[in-house]
Protein backbone atom coordinates (compact mmCIF):
# COMPACT_ATOMS: atom_id res chain seq x y z
CA UNK A 1 0.00 0.00 0.00
CA UNK A 2 1.26 3.41 -0.93
CA UNK A 3 0.00 6.89 -0.35
CA UNK A 4 -1.51 8.26 -3.53
CA UNK A 5 -2.48 11.74 -4.60
CA UNK A 6 -5.17 11.31 -7.28
CA UNK A 7 -4.98 13.87 -10.06
CA UNK A 8 -8.61 14.84 -9.59
CA UNK A 9 -7.88 15.89 -6.01
CA UNK A 10 -5.29 18.44 -7.08
CA UNK A 11 -7.74 21.34 -7.10
CA UNK A 12 -8.78 20.46 -3.55
CA UNK A 13 -5.13 20.32 -2.55
CA UNK A 14 -4.50 23.78 -3.96
CA UNK A 15 -7.53 25.11 -2.08
CA UNK A 16 -6.37 23.46 1.16
CA UNK A 17 -2.86 24.82 0.81
CA UNK A 18 -4.12 28.28 0.01
CA UNK A 19 -6.32 28.08 3.12
CA UNK A 20 -3.23 27.16 5.10
CA UNK A 21 -1.63 30.37 3.87
CA UNK A 22 0.48 29.10 0.98
CA UNK A 23 0.77 30.46 -2.53
CA UNK A 24 1.04 27.62 -5.03
CA UNK A 25 3.49 27.91 -7.89
CA UNK A 26 3.71 25.36 -10.69
CA UNK A 27 4.98 25.03 -14.27
CA UNK A 28 2.95 27.34 -16.48
CA UNK A 29 3.08 28.31 -20.11
CA UNK A 30 2.46 32.06 -20.30
CA UNK A 31 3.18 34.69 -22.96
CA UNK A 32 5.01 32.11 -25.05
CA UNK A 33 7.39 30.96 -22.33
CA UNK A 34 7.34 28.21 -19.71
CA UNK A 35 8.33 28.98 -16.14
CA UNK A 36 7.07 28.66 -12.58
CA UNK A 37 4.12 30.91 -11.87
CA UNK A 38 1.37 31.20 -9.31
CA UNK A 39 -1.71 29.10 -10.05
CA UNK A 40 -5.23 28.91 -8.65
CA UNK A 41 -6.34 25.76 -10.44
CA UNK A 42 -4.71 22.52 -11.58
CA UNK A 43 -5.81 23.24 -15.14
CA UNK A 44 -3.34 26.16 -15.23
CA UNK A 45 -0.42 23.82 -14.63
CA UNK A 46 1.68 22.59 -17.52
CA UNK A 47 2.75 19.34 -15.87
CA UNK A 48 3.42 17.55 -19.15
CA UNK A 49 6.47 19.67 -19.89
CA UNK A 50 9.72 17.77 -19.63
CA UNK A 51 11.22 20.91 -18.15
CA UNK A 52 10.27 24.58 -17.97
CA UNK A 53 12.44 26.94 -20.01
CA UNK A 54 13.11 29.04 -16.91
CA UNK A 55 14.23 27.47 -13.62
CA UNK A 56 12.74 27.82 -10.14
CA UNK A 57 15.99 29.55 -9.17
CA UNK A 58 14.30 32.74 -10.41
CA UNK A 59 12.00 32.60 -7.37
CA UNK A 60 14.82 32.35 -4.84
CA UNK A 61 17.44 34.48 -6.53
CA UNK A 62 15.52 36.86 -8.78
CA UNK A 63 17.19 38.47 -11.76
CA UNK A 64 16.91 41.85 -10.08
CA UNK A 65 16.43 42.37 -6.36
CA UNK A 66 16.24 45.66 -4.45
CA UNK A 67 18.51 45.66 -1.38
CA UNK A 68 18.53 49.16 0.04
CA UNK A 69 16.57 52.34 -0.58
CA UNK A 70 18.39 55.59 0.19
CA UNK A 71 17.44 59.23 0.39
CA UNK A 72 19.76 62.15 0.97
CA UNK A 73 18.27 65.44 2.14
CA UNK A 74 19.91 68.65 3.35
CA UNK A 75 20.64 67.40 6.85
CA UNK A 76 19.88 63.68 6.85
CA UNK A 77 20.67 60.51 5.06
CA UNK A 78 17.93 57.89 5.31
CA UNK A 79 18.37 54.33 4.23
CA UNK A 80 16.01 51.44 4.44
CA UNK A 81 16.89 47.78 4.00
CA UNK A 82 14.47 46.06 1.69
CA UNK A 83 13.71 42.45 2.51
CA UNK A 84 11.73 39.97 0.45
CA UNK A 85 8.10 39.53 1.52
CA UNK A 86 7.44 36.78 4.06
CA UNK A 87 5.31 34.53 1.89
CA UNK A 88 4.78 30.82 2.33
CA UNK A 89 5.08 29.11 -1.03
CA UNK A 90 4.67 25.65 -2.47
CA UNK A 91 6.50 24.80 -5.65
CA UNK A 92 4.49 21.99 -7.18
CA UNK A 93 5.85 19.86 -10.01
CA UNK A 94 9.53 20.74 -9.71
CA UNK A 95 11.79 18.45 -11.71
CA UNK A 96 14.48 16.67 -9.68
CA UNK A 97 17.28 18.53 -11.48
CA UNK A 98 15.85 21.93 -10.54
CA UNK A 99 15.24 20.88 -6.94
CA UNK A 100 18.82 19.62 -6.72
CA UNK A 101 19.98 22.96 -8.06
CA UNK A 102 18.62 24.71 -4.98
CA UNK A 103 20.47 22.39 -2.64
CA UNK A 104 23.66 22.81 -4.65
CA UNK A 105 23.45 26.58 -4.18
CA UNK A 106 22.64 26.52 -0.45
CA UNK A 107 26.26 26.32 0.77
CA UNK A 108 27.25 29.15 -1.57
CA UNK A 109 24.65 31.53 -0.18
CA UNK A 110 25.45 30.54 3.40
CA UNK A 111 29.22 30.29 3.31
CA UNK A 112 31.01 33.40 4.59
CA UNK A 113 27.86 35.42 4.88
CA UNK A 114 24.31 34.19 5.23
CA UNK A 115 22.33 35.65 2.36
CA UNK A 116 19.03 36.54 3.97
CA UNK A 117 17.34 37.05 0.62
CA UNK A 118 18.05 33.46 -0.42
CA UNK A 119 17.44 31.74 2.91
CA UNK A 120 14.31 33.62 3.83
CA UNK A 121 12.78 32.39 0.61
CA UNK A 122 14.19 28.88 1.05
CA UNK A 123 12.76 28.62 4.55
CA UNK A 124 9.34 29.78 3.42
CA UNK A 125 9.15 27.35 0.50
CA UNK A 126 8.16 23.73 0.18
CA UNK A 127 9.45 21.85 -2.86
CA UNK A 128 7.14 19.20 -4.25
CA UNK A 129 9.08 17.36 -6.93
CA UNK A 130 7.61 15.15 -9.60
CA UNK A 131 9.81 12.38 -10.97
CA UNK A 132 10.30 12.59 -14.72
CA UNK A 133 8.33 10.38 -17.02
CA UNK A 134 10.06 11.64 -20.14
CA UNK A 135 13.54 12.87 -21.01
CA UNK A 136 14.89 14.55 -24.11
CA UNK A 137 18.21 14.53 -25.96
CA UNK A 138 19.65 17.19 -23.67
CA UNK A 139 18.83 15.69 -20.25
CA UNK A 140 22.02 14.57 -18.50
CA UNK A 141 21.16 14.12 -14.82
CA UNK A 142 22.62 10.61 -14.72
CA UNK A 143 25.97 11.92 -15.96
CA UNK A 144 26.25 14.15 -12.88
CA UNK A 145 25.22 11.29 -10.59
CA UNK A 146 21.61 12.35 -10.15
CA UNK A 147 18.55 10.61 -11.57
CA UNK A 148 15.06 11.31 -12.95
CA UNK A 149 13.70 10.62 -9.46
CA UNK A 150 16.46 12.08 -7.36
CA UNK A 151 15.11 13.43 -4.06
CA UNK A 152 17.88 15.99 -3.48
CA UNK A 153 16.41 19.35 -2.63
CA UNK A 154 12.87 17.96 -2.51
CA UNK A 155 10.55 18.12 0.50
CA UNK A 156 7.99 15.83 -1.10
CA UNK A 157 8.59 13.43 -3.98
CA UNK A 158 5.74 12.49 -6.28
CA UNK A 159 6.09 9.55 -8.64
CA UNK A 160 3.61 9.45 -11.53
CA UNK A 161 1.36 6.38 -11.57
CA UNK A 162 1.54 4.21 -14.65
CA UNK A 163 -2.16 4.92 -15.28
CA UNK A 164 -1.40 8.66 -15.39
CA UNK A 165 -4.18 9.44 -12.92
CA UNK A 166 -2.10 10.48 -9.93
CA UNK A 167 1.15 10.20 -8.04
CA UNK A 168 2.73 8.13 -5.32
CA UNK A 169 3.54 10.46 -2.44
CA UNK A 170 6.71 10.31 -0.37
CA UNK A 171 7.56 12.93 2.22
CA UNK A 172 11.31 13.54 2.20
CA UNK A 173 11.78 16.21 4.84
CA UNK A 174 9.97 17.39 7.96
CA UNK A 175 8.62 20.27 5.97
CA UNK A 176 7.32 17.77 3.43
CA UNK A 177 5.68 15.64 6.11
CA UNK A 178 3.95 18.72 7.50
CA UNK A 179 2.72 19.64 4.03
CA UNK A 180 1.32 16.16 3.43
CA UNK A 181 -0.51 16.41 6.75
CA UNK A 182 -2.40 19.48 5.55
CA UNK A 183 -3.97 17.38 2.78
CA UNK A 184 -4.03 13.95 4.46
CA UNK A 185 -7.77 13.61 3.91
CA UNK A 186 -7.24 13.94 0.16
CA UNK A 187 -4.55 11.27 -0.05
CA UNK A 188 -5.54 7.62 -0.50
CA UNK A 189 -3.90 4.37 0.54
CA UNK A 190 -3.74 2.19 -2.55
CA UNK A 191 -1.63 -0.31 -4.37
CA UNK A 192 -0.66 1.45 -7.55
CA UNK A 193 2.39 1.05 -9.72
CA UNK A 194 4.62 3.99 -10.49
CA UNK A 195 5.33 4.64 -14.15
CA UNK A 196 8.77 3.51 -15.31
CA UNK A 197 11.47 6.17 -15.25
CA UNK A 198 12.75 7.45 -18.56
CA UNK A 199 16.15 6.27 -19.71
CA UNK A 200 18.77 8.99 -19.47
CA UNK A 201 21.95 7.67 -21.01
CA UNK A 202 25.29 8.65 -19.52
CA UNK A 203 26.84 11.31 -21.74
CA UNK A 204 30.23 11.84 -20.13
CA UNK A 205 32.42 10.49 -17.37
CA UNK A 206 32.40 13.19 -14.72
CA UNK A 207 35.23 11.58 -12.72
CA UNK A 208 37.50 11.60 -15.77
CA UNK A 209 36.49 15.20 -16.47
CA UNK A 210 37.28 16.32 -12.92
CA UNK A 211 40.64 14.61 -13.06
CA UNK A 212 41.54 16.38 -16.31
CA UNK A 213 40.37 19.74 -15.01
CA UNK A 214 42.39 19.32 -11.81
CA UNK A 215 45.60 18.95 -13.83
CA UNK A 216 47.06 22.46 -13.94
CA UNK A 217 48.83 21.61 -17.19
CA UNK A 218 45.49 21.65 -18.94
CA UNK A 219 44.54 25.17 -17.93
CA UNK A 220 46.28 26.65 -20.96
CA UNK A 221 45.35 23.74 -23.23
CA UNK A 222 44.43 24.48 -26.84
CA UNK A 223 41.30 22.52 -26.11
CA UNK A 224 39.59 25.57 -24.61
CA UNK A 225 40.08 27.64 -27.74
CA UNK A 226 38.85 24.92 -30.07
CA UNK A 227 35.77 23.99 -28.07
CA UNK A 228 34.56 27.56 -27.61
CA UNK A 229 35.26 28.97 -31.06
CA UNK A 230 31.61 29.30 -31.94
CA UNK A 231 30.53 30.70 -28.53
CA UNK A 232 28.99 34.10 -29.21
CA UNK A 233 29.33 35.23 -25.61
CA UNK A 234 25.72 35.68 -24.56
CA UNK A 235 24.55 34.84 -21.07
CA UNK A 236 21.70 32.51 -21.88
CA UNK A 237 23.41 29.36 -20.55
CA UNK A 238 24.23 31.02 -17.25
CA UNK A 239 20.88 32.72 -16.78
CA UNK A 240 18.91 29.56 -17.55
CA UNK A 241 21.13 27.46 -15.33
CA UNK A 242 19.55 26.25 -12.08
CA UNK A 243 22.85 26.65 -10.21
CA UNK A 244 24.61 29.70 -11.72
CA UNK A 245 24.49 32.35 -9.06
CA UNK A 246 26.78 35.26 -9.97
CA UNK A 247 25.51 38.74 -9.41
CA UNK A 248 26.50 42.38 -9.60
CA UNK A 249 25.55 45.24 -7.28
CA UNK A 250 24.20 48.34 -8.98
CA UNK A 251 23.09 51.66 -7.57
CA UNK A 252 20.18 53.12 -9.49
CA UNK A 253 19.17 56.67 -8.86
CA UNK A 254 20.71 60.09 -8.51
CA UNK A 255 22.59 62.08 -5.87
CA UNK A 256 19.51 62.45 -3.72
CA UNK A 257 17.72 59.13 -3.84
CA UNK A 258 17.97 55.68 -5.25
CA UNK A 259 17.91 51.95 -4.85
CA UNK A 260 20.78 49.53 -4.53
CA UNK A 261 20.08 46.35 -6.48
CA UNK A 262 21.47 42.87 -6.85
CA UNK A 263 21.35 41.88 -10.53
CA UNK A 264 22.26 38.64 -12.25
CA UNK A 265 25.64 38.71 -13.91
CA UNK A 266 27.35 36.20 -16.15
CA UNK A 267 30.93 34.96 -16.54
CA UNK A 268 30.20 34.79 -20.29
CA UNK A 269 30.27 38.56 -20.51
CA UNK A 270 33.53 40.36 -21.21
CA UNK A 271 32.47 43.07 -18.75
CA UNK A 272 32.26 40.54 -15.91
CA UNK A 273 35.99 40.69 -15.22
CA UNK A 274 36.84 44.06 -16.74
CA UNK A 275 39.00 46.08 -14.38
CA UNK A 276 38.60 49.83 -13.92
CA UNK A 277 42.00 50.22 -15.57
CA UNK A 278 40.64 48.65 -18.75
CA UNK A 279 42.67 45.48 -18.25
CA UNK A 280 40.63 42.30 -18.59
CA UNK A 281 42.14 39.11 -17.18
CA UNK A 282 39.62 37.05 -19.15
CA UNK A 283 39.91 38.82 -22.43
CA UNK A 284 38.82 36.03 -24.77
CA UNK A 285 35.64 33.97 -24.93
CA UNK A 286 37.67 30.78 -24.51
CA UNK A 287 38.93 31.95 -21.12
CA UNK A 288 35.39 32.76 -20.08
CA UNK A 289 34.02 29.38 -21.15
CA UNK A 290 36.92 27.69 -19.34
CA UNK A 291 35.99 29.65 -16.22
CA UNK A 292 32.42 28.41 -16.39
CA UNK A 293 33.47 24.77 -16.69
CA UNK A 294 36.24 25.09 -14.08
CA UNK A 295 33.90 26.79 -11.65
CA UNK A 296 31.26 24.11 -11.99
CA UNK A 297 33.43 21.01 -11.98
CA UNK A 298 36.55 22.02 -10.10
CA UNK A 299 36.41 25.16 -7.91
CA UNK A 300 32.91 24.58 -6.56
CA UNK A 301 33.73 20.96 -5.80
CA UNK A 302 36.87 22.06 -3.99
CA UNK A 303 35.03 24.54 -1.84
CA UNK A 304 31.69 22.85 -1.20
CA UNK A 305 32.27 19.20 -2.09
CA UNK A 306 29.69 19.12 -4.85
CA UNK A 307 29.67 19.96 -8.56
CA UNK A 308 27.65 22.98 -9.57
CA UNK A 309 25.57 21.20 -12.22
CA UNK A 310 22.36 19.26 -11.79
CA UNK A 311 22.19 17.94 -15.33
CA UNK A 312 19.09 19.76 -16.59
CA UNK A 313 20.73 20.39 -19.98
CA UNK A 314 19.25 23.85 -20.50
CA UNK A 315 22.67 25.26 -21.41
CA UNK A 316 22.72 23.13 -24.54
CA UNK A 317 18.98 22.96 -25.16
CA UNK A 318 18.64 26.71 -25.45
CA UNK A 319 22.09 27.67 -26.73
CA UNK A 320 21.83 29.75 -29.93
CA UNK A 321 24.92 28.01 -31.35
CA UNK A 322 24.38 24.49 -30.01
CA UNK A 323 27.17 24.55 -27.42
CA UNK A 324 26.92 23.62 -23.77
CA UNK A 325 28.30 21.64 -20.90
CA UNK A 326 27.47 18.23 -22.38
CA UNK A 327 29.58 18.60 -25.51
CA UNK A 328 32.49 20.11 -23.59
CA UNK A 329 32.55 17.39 -20.96
CA UNK A 330 32.09 14.72 -23.59
CA UNK A 331 35.08 16.07 -25.46
CA UNK A 332 37.15 16.14 -22.25
CA UNK A 333 36.11 12.55 -21.48
CA UNK A 334 37.31 11.47 -24.92
CA UNK A 335 40.61 13.36 -24.89
CA UNK A 336 43.62 11.08 -25.37
CA UNK A 337 45.40 10.53 -22.07
Amino acid sequence: MTRILPKNKLDDCIAAWQKAGFSVLAPVQRHGMSSFGEVQKASEMALDLILTERTIKDHFFPQTEPLIKYKISKHDIDSETMTPPERKRIFFGVRPCDASGLEIDDPLFGWDYKDDYWFRRRENSVIVSIACSEADDFCMCTSVKLSPDSTRGADVMLRPLSGGNGWQVEAISERGTALCDTVSSLLQEETAQAAPLPRVDGKFDVEKVMEWLADKENFESRFWKDISMRCIGCGSCTFLCPTCHCFDIQDEGDTYQGIRRKNWDSCSFALFTMHTSGHNPRNAQSTRWRQRIMHKFNYYQGKFGVNSCSGCGRCTRQCPVDMGITETLQAITNLPR
Binding site: H31, I232, G233, S236, W264, F269
Partner: peptide, 16 residues
Protein backbone atom coordinates in the same frame (compact mmCIF):
# COMPACT_ATOMS: atom_id res chain seq x y z
CA UNK B 1 5.23 44.99 -21.46
CA UNK B 2 4.32 41.32 -21.10
CA UNK B 3 6.86 40.23 -23.67
CA UNK B 4 9.68 42.35 -22.25
CA UNK B 5 8.86 41.21 -18.72
CA UNK B 6 10.36 37.86 -19.80
CA UNK B 7 13.67 39.46 -20.79
CA UNK B 8 16.60 38.25 -18.68
CA UNK B 9 19.18 40.53 -20.28
CA UNK B 10 21.34 37.66 -21.44
CA UNK B 11 22.00 39.72 -24.58
CA UNK B 12 21.74 36.64 -26.81
CA UNK B 13 19.89 38.87 -29.32
CA UNK B 14 22.84 41.24 -29.46
CA UNK B 15 25.48 38.53 -29.58
CA UNK B 16 23.73 36.61 -32.36
Amino acid sequence: KEQFSKCIKCYACRQA
